[in-house]
Design a protein around this nucleic acid. Sequence first.
DNA 1: GGCCAGGTGTAAA
DNA 2: TTTACACATGGC
Length: 203
Amino acid sequence: MLISSAFDLYLFLEKQNLLQDAPPLWWPNAGSFEVVVGAILTQNTTWHNVEQSLSNLENYITLEKFCLLDENKLKEKIKPSGFYNQKAPRLKMLTCKIQKEFGSFQNFQKNVTREWLLAQKGIGNETADAILCYGCLRAEMVVDTYTKRLLKMYGIEFQTYDAYKYFLQEGVQSHFPISQHHSVYAQFHGMIVEYNKKLKTFK
DNA sequence: GGCCAGGTGTAAA
DNA sequence: TTTACACATGGC
């Protein structure tokens, strides 16, 4: 299988039926506040561990309730997903700031910018795009280490995060109408993650 | 028992 | 502006 463009990769992954058991936009509960929490918790951590933490938090996953949660209590609840001493204060700071500056999660979805997210402690390129794509339903594609590794297998490499992102988005933009860009980005990244999981089970 | 996971921030060169 | 390292749990 020769892959020389992002669209080739998309078609290749699509043939594998990787998302048949996944939600439509791949990320669980896309479009909800839970995505913001999950995006931070999953940093350098398996989704399986994040699910334990989210389950511990089930009664607190709204913007309003989350801000009222005691930081030490939050640490306890997110222990299964690791790095809790840094993720807890960062989550607390982030969610309270969303509450204070945007008033509601709906308003945050509509008005937050990538620059605003990147200025928050604990949010880098990948987490910012995950929150924008799956939390705010914006047409922003996520690039992760899997993506870079996969492209490298086909001899495709770039220097910066943005270069990867634009390479992938361009491949989608040139073959889909603008109305479909968001859902295709969301599924494209999802397929890349699932494909890597699948590869691992064969080892 | 070692390695890795749906990364990020910081300090030092 | 790059590189090295800390952060932490759970699965294989």
